[in-house]
Measured scan of single mutants.
Amino acid sequence: RLRTTILPEQLEILYRWYMQDSNPTRKMLDCISEEVGLKKRVVQVWFQNTRARERK
């Protein structure tokens, strides 16, 4: 499996959503993934990793 590259524009959108809610619902993940143009699972893992980084 290839690692997904997240573009700066996509990152900006993801962080904007993250500021609103760091733990989005499944429905929100659907909306975010549509807006960003990434698979739902990629967005979900990005949120998990970002929460983990914040805890450090």
Rank of each mutant, 00 (worst) to 15 (best):
R3V: 11
R16C: 05
G37F: 01
N23Y: 10
T50M: 13
K27G: 12
S33E: 07
Y18D: 04
V45D: 14
C31P: 05
N49E: 15
K27Q: 10
R1K: 15
R55N: 13
I32C: 03
N49R: 09
K27R: 09
I6Y: 06
V43Y: 05
Y15I: 10
R53P: 05
Y18L: 01
F47W: 01
C31K: 13
R1Y: 04
Q48C: 10
W17G: 04
K39L: 02
Y15E: 13
I6C: 07
V43D: 01
L11G: 11
Y15N: 14
L2C: 01
R1T: 01
I6R: 06
L38Q: 01
L11V: 14
A52D: 14
L2W: 07
Q10I: 01
Q48N: 09
G37P: 01
M19D: 12
F47G: 02
P8A: 12
C31W: 03
C31S: 14
E9V: 00
R41M: 10
V43N: 00
K56S: 08
P8I: 07
E34T: 09
R53D: 12
Q20A: 12
M28W: 02
K40D: 07
Q10G: 02
L7R: 14
K56V: 01
L7P: 13
N49P: 01
K56C: 09
K39G: 13
S22C: 07
V45R: 09
S33P: 00
Y18Q: 01
E35P: 05
L7T: 15
Y18G: 04
P8L: 14
G37T: 00
L14A: 02
D21T: 03
F47K: 04
V43L: 06
I32Q: 00
Q10V: 02
N49W: 02
W17E: 10
E34M: 06
E35I: 00
W17D: 06
G37C: 05
L11C: 03
L14N: 02
E9Y: 07
R53F: 13
A52S: 11
A52R: 13
I32D: 02
K56I: 03
L29P: 00
Q48G: 06
T50P: 01
L11N: 15
S33I: 00
L29Q: 06
E34K: 11
E54I: 06
F47D: 00
E54T: 06
R16Q: 08
Y18K: 04
N23D: 10
V36G: 04
T25Q: 07
P8W: 06
K27E: 14
Q48E: 15
R53S: 13
L38V: 06
P8N: 06
V36P: 08
Q10H: 14
V42K: 04
N49M: 09
V43S: 02
Y15V: 11
Y15T: 15
R26G: 15
Q10L: 03
L2R: 12
Q10R: 03
K56F: 00
R41A: 15
L14R: 02
L11F: 08
L29R: 03
Q44V: 06
L2G: 14
C31M: 14
V36S: 13
E54P: 00
K27L: 07
R55Q: 15
V45H: 10
Y15K: 14
N23I: 00
Q48R: 11
K40C: 09
D21R: 04
L14K: 04
N49V: 08
E9R: 04
A52C: 13
S33D: 00
N23G: 04
K39A: 11
Q10F: 03
E54K: 05
I32F: 03
Y15R: 14
E54D: 12
R51Q: 09
L38K: 06
D30L: 04
D30Q: 10
Q10E: 07
P24M: 06
T25D: 14
C31H: 15
K27V: 11
Q20D: 09
K40M: 08
R41Q: 15
W46Q: 01
Y18N: 03
T25F: 02
P8S: 11
Q10M: 07
I6L: 09
R26L: 14
Q20Y: 08
R55F: 10
E35N: 08
L14I: 00
E35L: 02
V36F: 09
R1N: 15
P24W: 05
V45T: 09
R51P: 02
M19Q: 12
V45W: 11
P24C: 02
E9C: 06
N23Q: 09
N23S: 10
A52W: 06
D30N: 12
L38R: 03
V42D: 15
Q44M: 11
K39I: 00
V42R: 07
